[in-house]
Amino acid sequence: MTDKNNLIVYCEYEDGKVADVSLELLTKGRQLADKLGIKLEAVVAGSNLKDIEKQIFPYGVDTIYKVDDDRLYPYTSLPHSSILINLFREIQPRIAFMGATSIGRDLGPRVSSALHSGLTADCTALEIGDYTDAKTGKEYKDLLYQIRPAFGGNIVATIVNPECRPQMATVREGVMKKEARDSNYVGKVVELDVNKYTRPEDFVVEIIDRHVEKSKVNLKGSPIIVAGGYGVGSKENFELLQKLADTLGAEVGASRAAVDAGWIDHDRQIGQTGVTVRPKLYIACGISGQIQHIAGMQDSSIIISINSDPNAPINTIADYVITGKIEDVVPRLIKYYKKNSK
């Protein structure tokens, strides 16, 4: 294990399947590793990990660190943190990614604190570039640009970690594209001894009950999304959006403001702190268009904006702009769709 200063992705898995978000990060990781001329590595900790590498190698992974032990699944903070902290001290990654999931957001900060390395949460873009410290004038080559909306999504910040390693970032599911590199790609597997990387006292948190609920909402997979924002105005008006969605065979989504207002469940939130979607058609109803929302839907093929404000920021990225009230426009769209569809 002498390879150092590479790019590593912490891979999550459930039911024997590596999580999509981890595969998306491996895809992005491969691109950046190529650019930097370094290796792509993965670390996975859990139980029954036999053959897990078959799912990971096709993404162009050169080394997989595997820690297989019954006590490592389901995930708990301390043993997984210890594994990463100890492994990272050994292999000194230049860059480390994890999913901005309840696991990655629990694990990442703990690891970054122990290693005194910078961590940027919920990045929407990751790039490589140079940086000059404005105070010292010191130049840094090939840093990781961690780009994320900040301040409730009103600005976009580019964050760098000039001195500390690894440069750590979390990214939400669906933000990066998932694309295998080569189905025949094979790297090496390094099995790690759990007892060397964890301490007995790491296993103090005990999961006594686990109730897995499958999400009923499939925003990511829906070709049409009818989304509502603060301008929808009420829970009742959201029912109008639901009617339009039912008519078109679409899912209902929402901006954060609508979720915060309590008009709709948070699992329908689209944006940087919600789900990222790329549907064929996105109908934005009463959504003003904060960056934090646009970050999660700007790659939609066609965007229709319905807003009473003709100057709503979202109109600048829309293909069609309808200026009017939701309760006025939406019922008529339903009516004309019914009239014209077979």
């Binding site: 005194h116 940086y131 640009y145 976009v156 910040a157 760098v160 970690n161 000039p162």
Partner: peptide, 9 residues
């Protein structure tokens, strides 16, 4: 450890 390189509107 993290520095803000730039902030954009």
């Amino acid at each position: 450890p993290t520095k803000v390189k730039q902030i954009e509107n």
